[in-house]
Amino acid sequence: MTSLTQDTDPIPRAERPAANPPPFPPTWALKVTMAVTGMAFAAFLAFHMAGNLKVYLGAEDFDHYADWLRTLLNPLVPGEVFLWIFRVVLGLSFVAHVGSGAILWYRARKARGPHARKILVNRISARTMIWTGLILGSFVTFHVLELTVGMRPMASDAFVQGSAYANLVHSFSRPAVAFFYGLTMALLAFHLSHGLLSVVNDLGATGRRFRAVWFAIAGIVAVLIVLGNLSIPIAVQTGILT
C-alpha cells in the first residue's frame, strides 16, 4: 500500500475499443462465404442426385444424361465450355469454403483459450463440422478421380471414359468403394443438415415464419439427397443394377 502520484502511477482507466480494424478477412464475411458456397454445393448436390437417379432408367438414358451434361447450353455456348465454367465455379467455391472453414476453425480454437469446454449438450453435428468437412473433402477428390478423371487405382479397372453407367456400376461393385461411399453419405447428412440450418443465421434471416419454412425445406432436401445417393451403391451391391 503505497501512495503514488497521478503522473507516475495513474488510476487505471477502462480500455477503449480498438482503433484498428479486426483481423482480415472479417469473420462475418468468412461465415457468409461459407453459407453461400455451402448453399451452392447443396444445390449442386440436389441436381446431381436427381441426375444420378437416372441410373435406374438404364444405361442408355444415363449415358445420354451424362453426355447432355458435357454439352450443356450447346449451341449457345460451344463444346464443353459451360461444363468448364461450371467446374471452375465449383472448384473456386470449394477452395473458398475450405479456406474460410480453416480460418474460422483456427480463430475459434484461439478464442476459446487454454480451457477447452468439454461438457456440451447439443449439436454434435456443429462441433464435428471440421471433421465431416475434411472427410467429405477427401471423398470429393476421390470421387472426381474415380468417376470423372478415371485415374487408377481410384477408378475401377474397367473404367472407360464416356461410359458413365458402366463406370458407375463397376466402381460400386467394389465393396470397399460402396462402403466408403455409404459412410460418406451418412457424414454428408450431418454436414448438410447443420450447414443448411446454419445458413439462416449466417445470412441473417430473423423472421420466424421464414426460419420455420427454411428448416423444413432444408431437412427434406438433406434427407432426399442422402437417401437418393445412398440407394445407388446399395442397388449395385444387391444386384439390382448391373
Binding site: V121, M129, D202
Partner: peptide, 22 residues
C-alpha cells in the same frame, strides 16, 4: 460495422453450436 468489428477483435466466430442459448 463498429460493434461487429470490435467483437471480432476479442471474441471468436460463431459455429452455431447453440450452447449459449441454453
Amino acid at each position: 460495422r463498429a460493434m461487429v468489428a470490435q467483437m471480432e477483435h476479442e471474441f471468436g466466430p460463431c459455429s452455431q453450436i447453440r450452447e449459449c442459448v441454453l
